[in-house]
């Protein structure tokens, strides 16, 4: 188990009306990759602080089009600006992509469980992400770096399809320049200009330095990537209860009532999306669950 007691999770500001969305104004838009962009949001009126824990998500609403669950990818210490990184893959995310600074979208949240970052203080930290999986883990990275002295070794392992698909490219470069944690990056395929690792992200795991008995690992990425990453981490001796994964399902209400996000006995939106691996091991292995 993680060394410290669980931190109580934040809920929507007015839990009596979790079905109502709150208007937030877009302050900045940044294109991350050809199909992925990051929004910085602030409440459209009033400036109530938005508190969340790393790994939690919001339901983002494009006026009249629909709503999608998107994990929060900003700094949890910054309660004034809400940051989301979104890949435009469906009707709603494409509608959100068309919004310009000054325009408004709806926000409901924060919902769901969180990465046990504060709870893991004292442990070595290993974060393994694939593709867009870096977005829900960036808040955890910020929080660990803000309290860096409280943790042992910190290894960040990042995988992407191509160098052009790497999220937060500049930030990754800055992080690689630091002496207080190690960043490993691999891409599945690249042109000759890429002078770093080529291969699946799991091939980097043997390079990470940690004391397996006192390590917490946080894993997020596509299903296949998580499956092989968890296997590799288990082989290196990390206990299943100290490996955390973030699961994905259809989510519509965000509040555990609509039934779409079931994974066996769990509702991903309220029992997850972050689970300790031992909690969902049985369900992780089943197909079409």
């Amino acid at each position: 188990m993680v060394p410290n007691a669980p931190v109580p999770r934040p809920h929507p500001a007015n839990p009596a009306v979790p079905m109502l969305t709150q208007p937030f104004q877009i302050r900045r838009v940044r294109q991350e990759t050809p199909d992925t962009f990051t929004l910085a949001l602030q409440p459209a009126w009033g400036a109530a602080p938005f508190c969340f824990l790393p790994g939690q998500f919001n339901m983002l609403y494009a006026f009249g089009v629909g709503e999608v669950p998107i994990s929060i990818s900003g700094d949890p210490a910054n309660t004034q600006t809400l940051v989301h990184t979104i890949r435009a893959v469906g009707t709603v995310t494409r509608a959100i992509q068309k919004l310009k600074p000054g325009q408004v979208l709806g926000v409901r949240g924060p919902f769901g469980s969180h990465w046990p970052v504060a709870e893991a203080a004292g442990h070595d930290m290993v974060i393994v992400v694939g593709g867009l999986g870096l977005a829900p883990l960036r808040p955890a990275i910020y929080q660990i770096l803000a309290h860096r002295a409280e943790y042992g070794n910190f290894e960040l392992i990042v995988g992407a399809r191509t160098p052009g698909d790497l999220l937060y490219y500049k930030e990754l470069e800055q992080w690689r320049g630091r002496f207080d944690f190690r960043v490993h990056v691999a891409v599945d395929s690249a042109g000759p200009e890429w002078r770093n690792n080529v291969g699946v992200v799991t091939t980097l795991i043997p390079r990470a330095r940690f004391d397996p008995w006192h390590t917490t690992a946080l894993v997020c990425g596509p299903g296949v990537m998580m499956r092989f990453t968890v296997q590799e981490l288990l082989q290196r001796g990390i206990k299943p209860e100290n490996i955390y994964v973030s699961m994905e399902r259809n989510m519509q209400c965000g509040i555990g009532l609509c039934g779409h996000c079931q994974l066996g006995p769990y509702f991903i939106c309220k029992d997850g999306p972050v689970f300790a691996f031992d909690q969902i091991e049985k369900w992780f292995a089943l197909r079409e669950i």
Binding site: F63, G64, V65, E67, Q252, C253, L257, C258, G259, H260
Partner: peptide
């Protein structure tokens, strides 16, 4: 059975939007 889908709709002008829920089927 309690599953329900969330549906967002607009009027033709695009000025009014509504959110509905309706029974859904697994």
């Amino acid at each position: 059975c309690f599953c329900h889908a969330i549906e967002d709709v607009t009027d033709l002008s695009g000025q009014q939007a509504e959110r509905w829920r309706r029974w859904d089927v697994c």
